[in-house]
Design a protein around this nucleic acid. Structure first.
Length: 330
DNA sequence: GTCCGGGTGG
DNA sequence: CCACCAGGAC
């Protein structure tokens, strides 16, 4: 704590801020991110070089950039933290049959499984650079088709802009142009700059190796953090739940009417054997893209519809029924 | 619940 | 032309 406070003071002194009281320092460290773009120096605090051992990752106590409300140290598996605890979920009796059925459907039909596209990112690079590439690739891949993400990564590689040093030195507008047209490219370009700086300041150009520290990076939420833990560190901390996994688990009754992907993750982790945690994502994503689609699920094509409590439940919306809904709402 | 910003398909 | 997609921040 002493070293951290000291380094924070040093950083504040070298910026336009000057440390006054203890709470000033706390506010400085824990400053809440605002929606508007802000100076990176407000969010990033450099760790004293002697706080880190070269060649290894720093301890989590040394992480100076973090979201509010995360208490230190926090190394253990993240405990279930919300009300979802209260609703008991038992292991669905037919889950193995359902899983096998979905596997068969998936083996017949090739889905454009766009998730996990990032695991290929820079697999020819040395480990540290590969991990950084995986992180950036994950950042870019959200709300973006796999081939678009791949193109952006390729352009970054060609311009030698897939390393933290290079990104840190590059203009945000340059990055923005290179990654276009990935979804939300403006914000992602800004987040790339911030992540590169954090990587250089606190991780020797590497990426964080804990879930909590990954979550503290701007633009990295639960879905991507678990993906990066799986792919970059080969360390399964939790299930990577995206909208497909979320939707399908609810339809199958594998979780009890969860409202958010995070609740789905917690519910699913309670009974799904850990060996399945990694593969469940690409499996259900592909299934969700082809058969168990969000809008009109093709229950008639689904071989496990007999085991699905939601099969044929959702009326396939016709133009008329959608008009009706719309009129009713307004 | 809303916004971000494109692409896509009704 | 417009609704919708989809992860993260707020």
């Amino acid at each position: 704590m002493h070293t951290r406070a000291t380094s924070v003071k040093a950083e504040m002194a070298s910026s336009e801020h000057s440390p006054k009281t203890k709470s000033d320092i706390l506010v400085f460290v824990r400053k809440k991110r605002s929606r508007k773009p802000q100076v990176i120096a407000e969010n990033i605090v450099k760790v004293e070089p002697q706080d880190q051992k070269l060649g290894s990752l720093p301890d989590i106590e040394d992480f100076a950039y973090k979201k509010p409300n995360i208490d230190l140290p926090q190394r253990k598996f993240r405990p279930v933290s919300n009300d979802y605890n209260k609703t008991e979920v038992t292991q669905p009796s037919n889950w193995v049959k359902v899983l096998e059925g979905i596997r068969e459907m998936r083996s017949l039909e090739d889905a454009p499984v766009d998730s996990m596209g990032c695991e290929k990112a820079g697999n020819s690079l040395p480990p540290k650079e590969r991990r950084f590439a995986v992180l950036i690739s994950s950042l870019l891949s959200s709300q973006t088709k796999d081939n678009v993400t791949h193109g952006a990564i390729q352009r970054l590689l060609d311009s030698n802009l897939l390393k933290p040093e290079a990104i840190d030195n590059a203009d945000e507008s340059t990055i923005k142009k290179l990654i276009y047209p990935v979804g939300f490219y403006t914000r992602k370009a800004s987040n790339m700059k911030k992540i590169a700086k954090i990587s250089l300041l606190n991780y020797h150009g590497d990426i964080p190796n804990t879930l909590e520290a990954l979550l503290s990076l701007p633009g990295i939420g639960p879905k991507m953090a678990h993906l990066v833990m799986n792919v970059a560190w080969n360390n399964v901390q939790g299930i990577c739940v995206d909208t497909h996994v979320h939707r399908i688990c609810n339809r199958l009754g594998w979780v009890k009417q969860t409202k958010t992907p995070e609740q789905t993750r917690e519910g699913l982790q309670k009974w799904l054997p850990k060996e399945e945690w990694v593969l469940i994502n690409p499996l259900l994503v592909g299934f969700g893209q082809t058969i168990c689609t969000p809008l009109r699920p093709s229950c008639s094509l689904c071989t496990v519809s007999g085991l699905c409590p939601s099969a044929f439940q959702e009326a396939t919306p016709t133009k008329k029924s959608r008009m009706k809904t719309k009129l009713g709402e307004s």
